[in-house]
């Protein structure tokens, strides 16, 4: 274990998966600590998104173990994994386009069953109280990511950058222990990226959530992550602080290629 004495939250051991003949991820292992901000980098096709899909139950690993706070995650369906405390965003934005911004966030509260069918159909006091409470909470999350101005717009009508923010708010609404962000800065201009870096750091500080972020922009990763994991051809080739990673020959090789025959 590193110098950090914080509690271990998410632990993956020897996780592998292959698609046909392609070993997309092989013997991958990580251990994330409480409220750590960790980066996952690697060239295109390295298997980063596949790691997220394994953690969130979209793919079942061929081998290996994954657990969250001691709870085994392997074999759980995605919604159970979310309930256990892992939330994610998607590289190719997947919002509920024809629901409003606010509704996009509200969906995430459903797994905790705020009230029952009877409350909904009879519109009991409980229904109004809970709906009110959830809306307030959702609006607070939206303002954290900088989206408080247009809660009633359709998600599909938002600008690209705002859609990425909304994805983060929606994931946060599940009250995760671990938040997985898949290229949250993709397609944003440099100004928006600086904003986003602030938002991500703020979320970690404010919610004490562990964040694993995939990002190609090195300024972004080096700027906010305490620790960086480097993936290449499905294998973890390096791990360390931004400084260590920057000067690691294996990493430079993976990104720039080697000049041998």
């Amino acid at each position: 274990m590193s110098a950090s004495s914080a509690k271990e939250v998410l632990k993956l051991n020897d996780v592998s998966v292959s698609f046909g003949g392609l070993k997309a991820v092989s013997q991958f292992g990580i251990s994330l600590h409480e409220s750590e901000l960790c980066g996952l980098i690697g060239p295109n096709g390295a298997g980063k998104t596949t790691v997220f899909n394994l953690i969130t139950g979209v793919y079942l690993p061929d081998s290996g173990t994954m657990d969250l706070d001691g709870q085994n995650l392997c074999g759980l369906p995605p919604h159970e994994i979310t309930k256990a405390g892992i939330a994610r965003t998607f590289q190719n934005i997947r919002l509920y386009k024809e629901l409003t911004v606010l509704e996009n966030v509200l969906v995430s509260y459903h797994m905790r069953k705020p009230y029952g069918y009877v409350d909904a159909l009879l519109r009991t006091r409980q229904y109004y109280a809970k709906e009110h409470e959830l809306k307030e909470h959702a609006l607070r999350l939206l303002s954290v990511v900088g989206l408080k101005n247009n809660p009633d717009d359709f998600a599909g009508s938002l600008s690209y950058g705002d859609q990425r923010r909304l994805e983060i708010a929606r994931a946060l609404a599940t009250s995760p222990k671990v938040l997985l962000l898949d290229e949250p800065g993709a397609g944003l201009n440099s100004g928006e990226k600086v904003e986003l870096m602030k938002v991500v750091s703020k979320i970690r500080d404010q919610f004490k959530v562990t964040i694993l972020v995939i990002e190609h922009d090195m300024k972004f990763v080096m700027g906010i992550c305490e620790r960086i994991l480097v993936l290449d051809h499905g294998e973890l080739i390096a791990e360390g602080t931004p400084k260590q990673i920057q000067s690691n020959p294996k990493v430079i090789e993976a990104y720039l290629g080697v000049a041998d025959a």
């Binding site: 969130t56 979209v58 369906p77 995605p78 919604h79 979310t82 309930k83 939330a87 994610r88 998607f90 997947r94 919002l95 509920y96 386009k97 024809e98 629901l99 509704e103 509200l106 969906v107 995430s108 509260y109 459903h110 797994m111 069953k113 705020p114 009230y115 069918y117 409350d119 909904a120 159909l121 229904y127 809970k130 709906e131 959830l134 929606r170 994931a171 609404a173 599940t174």
Partner: peptide, 25 residues
């Protein structure tokens, strides 16, 4: 029903099943 928590879960399935399950539905 549609304007309740369960109803929003149902609508989210129409919008995007993968997101929906990833948000705990």
């Amino acid at each position: 029903l549609i304007h309740s928590s369960a109803g929003r879960a149902i609508l989210s399935i129409r919008e995007d099943e993968i997101s929906s399950q990833s948000m705990g539905v």
